[in-house]
Design a protein around this nucleic acid. Structure first.
Lengths: 202, 202
DNA sequence: AAATAATTTAATCATTTGATTAAATACTAG
DNA sequence: CTAGTATTTAATCAAATGATTAAATTATTT
């Protein structure tokens, strides 16, 4: 059993590198990632990585853009649906987002860490203003709770969904939270989060 | 105006290094921190740092232990108070914790990132089991909501308090959230979080 | 004040790490 | 098959970085 992970062997060389970079960058972050680690994870050579991507920095930006989009565009269609009610959106987002996070548990901490280290750079990438802050969802939140800044409510909702994945190592460190239990709790949490958000909005 | 920050000049050399290390480590994380940065921040020399602390690793562990304690022991006394009601605890924690985070905005992301990178190491440090998971607060949550795992409720509460500080750069990146507005929202949030938690528990 | 110990520094080392180069190999078109 | 192009590799470079050393300076003791 090699430590080499399951990167499809029939991918193009470029895609092998990107697949490896996704794994290593999201796991260790930019600074702790060695280009040699990525090459090894891809089963390829270091020079080749630079041949394809010019530099660690360039490759990182490709991955980072992907990951930011993965984190936000996932909910964008739901959030801007003009036909669904607020409660329907809440239900859909909760299910959809927790499913996505179960498959990409390292995603939020990665994006938030790198963004924290380098806030300037990502202003352009995100377009939070157009896609999220001006969304139908935010407008609906503002309608329902006129006296509360909808950002408060939106952060609360996102926090309910994302924070468990960020704080998982803390709870697992004491041994009381197995991987299986965590998954079970997250499944339960789809309904709970939706229910709680609706309570807050009543 | 030097870029050198305000580390008290009358501190002992060791304390100057630790003050500098707190700033640089929490801001940049372990991997991105250069020992030369810490020395410069302290206004001191690199060799001296190794003379006092032997290595970057050792110095980091000192700071990390401090920061983990700062993140959790702050609420420990409240959480284990046997005289206060659940609602009183919620009120106190919300105010107390947001105040602490306003003074240490980089703290949660730092601790959670480093813990994520190195989960094994911090099992001993935290003692989450004894101080938190077996706390009076958790017991009271379990009493009030018998059908829900109290960890769900506790994570939700913590997330409401901590997540805004972790996601701040995301919201600030679009320019819609000034520092002043953020602080105002966090002040409001003390009451809101408490109110929302009580709603969830009804 | 001299001697001794503690503190601080400049210079240097060894390793790591991002990147390059030139040669080797595989692939494709004629 | 051969010539030419694209792909891949091993070897190497240069800069960054954690750590050490030995000398210089300062403080303390006698």
């Amino acid at each position: 059993m090699s430590k080499q992970s399951k990167i499809e062997v029939n991918l193009s060389t470029e895609e092998k590198f990107k697949a490896a970079a996704r794994i290593v960058f999201t796991k260790k972050g930019y600074a702790a990632t060695k280009t040699r680690d990525i090459a090894a994870e891809a089963g390829l050579n270091l020079a080749l990585l630079n041949y394809y991507f010019r530099s660690k920095e360039k490759l990182f930006e490709l991955i980072m853009i992907e990951k930011v989009e993965q984190l936000f565009t996932h909910i964008a269609p739901i959030i801007n649906d003009s036909t669904s009610t607020l409660n329907e959106k809440i239900d859909q987002i909760a299910i959809n987002y927790i499913d996505m996070l179960l498959e990409n548990p390292d995603l939020p901490l990665f994006v938030l860490s790198e963004m924290n280290r380098n806030p300037e750079r990502f202003g352009k990438i995100i377009r939070l203003d157009t896609h999220i802050l001006n969304s139908r969802f935010i407008a609906q939140l503002a309608e329902v709770k006129k006296e509360i800044n909808p950002i408060q409510l939106f952060i609360t909702f996102l926090g309910m969904l994302i924070f468990p994945f960020i704080s998982k190592p803390v709870f697992q460190s004491s041994g009381t939270l197995s991987e299986a239990l965590f998954c079970k709790l997250m499944e339960e949490r789809k309904e709970l989060t939706a229910k709680w958000m609706k309570m807050i909005l009543e």
